[in-house]
Design a protein around this nucleic acid. Structure first.
Lengths: 234, 234
DNA sequence: CTTGACACTGAACATATGTTCTGATATCAT
DNA sequence: ATGATATCAGAACATATGTTCAGTGTCAAG
């Protein structure tokens, strides 16, 4: 009977991409004729036709008889935003965490200086706030890259990024980075203080815990908040 | 000699506030006449006059002979901040990935319907673009939550989130999700096709590879791009 | 008072721009 | 093939909208 309209044609996508680009560049939406020029679409009526479809699909809103009256609601990535308000929000949702060093077995773990209010944004990683446990103070966070296979029993691989939070003391059940005086190495374990002894539980459930009789021989360096693995070819 | 122009008159402020409000509401800038109506300024030329001053002061940019060609650069707070520009930029920096299901051992892994985008932003996770390998097409990405310990040999824990990319075929060295026909389970392994046989290499370097003689008994479900572990108390 | 810079009015003008209409062409299901 | 629908072209139209200009009023300094 009829052709059914499939999702987004190449031209829909081209228009959406141009909208993003133009608004990003100029700060206001393009006119229909400007869309024509930059998308190899020859007729204003055709662009209008596509814009109406994009509005039906919920990608944009249009003002009636309004010049450049296009409100971009969603981008191609599926993200949605209603102009300024949400822009501000989504800016707040993105926090930058300084990548201060590496974890290497046999060396103390780097910890940022107690008073590190400023950091180099270039050597940082960006995280959506929604990935973090509720209201973790962003300025108490730092990140480390794991070198070597020494953390394998914590399910942490070579190359992984560990996001840490500065804490003085661990609470039971938290995963912490711990410096073991006797073994002279840093390890990531779930921490429990029980009957005056420290039990360090590996994340890998097939492995057995370490019991440490004297709590003073261990040093809590930070609490693990997030582990990120950018999977590469191997 | 003459009256000197002091910083921001009440009318300047009123216009700036209206610009913010209007853009925030509608998603595109107001026309001069709309500014008239909402600021009790009676003449278009007067608004034009003020707009030119605001442009000189660096608060806005204007396009010449462009309807609604106002680009808001600074807000009243003085902070140079959100404009539609930043809205679009922040859209580009933060992408939303649909969380389409769980990985459970013994069940085929869910894969989003071939039919394109339209995501429900609520059931998605947000990722900073900088975390992803260069220009991965965002609309080819989806995320799964791992249930159970079945992926432990891939260094993936219970509760981890795996970000996948839809692929038909794996290339050597990529980590893929594979459905094993004979074992009836999904597994995450590095994939190699060598001499007509498939070698599946665990991420954990202490473990040995699986060799599969007949490539047809395995089914590539997707390529692993990112693994995220939100470390919880345990 | 005079002068001149600023604040403002109202209207006319030119055009940038959304809308609509007629018709052609293409693609698909039956 | 045939009808139905989607896609497309070009032009005409109405108007939304920025621009300009000739004045008027105001206030401070000389």
């Amino acid at each position: 009977m009829s052709r059914k309209r499939v999702g987004l044609s190449p031209r829909h996508q081209k228009i959406l991409r141009f909208l993003e680009e133009f608004i990003s560049e100029k700060g206001y939406p393009p006119s229909i004729r400007e869309i024509c020029d930059h998308t190899q679409i020859s007729s204003t009526s055709l662009v209008n036709y596509y814009l109406n479809q994009l509005e039906e699909m919920g990608f944009i809103e249009r003002g009636s008889n309004v010049s450049r009256g296009i409100n971009l609601l969603k981008s191609l990535t599926g993200n949605f935003s209603h102009s300024l308000k949400d822009a501000a929000n989504s800016l707040n949702d993105l926090i930058s965490i300084p990548l201060v060093g590496n974890i290497v077995a046999g060396e103390p773990m780097p910890v940022p200086n107690s008073d590190f209010s400023y950091y180099d944004p270039d050597s940082g990683i960006e995280i959506a706030r929604t990935l973090l446990p509720k209201l973790d103070a962003a300025d108490q966070l730092y990140a480390l890259r794991v070198h070597g296979d020494s953390m394998i029993d914590a399910m942490v691989n070579d190359g992984d990024i560990v996001v840490m939070k500065k804490v003085n003391q661990a609470r039971n059940g938290e995963m912490v980075a711990i410096w073991l005086n006797d073994k002279e190495e840093t390890t990531l374990k779930y921490f429990y203080l029980e009957h005056g002894k420290v039990r360090l539980q590996p994340a890998n459930p097939t492995m057995k815990p370490i019991i440490i009789d004297n709590p003073k021989t261990v040093e809590v360096q930070g609490k693990v908040v997030l582990v990120i693995r950018q999977v590469s070819q191997k």
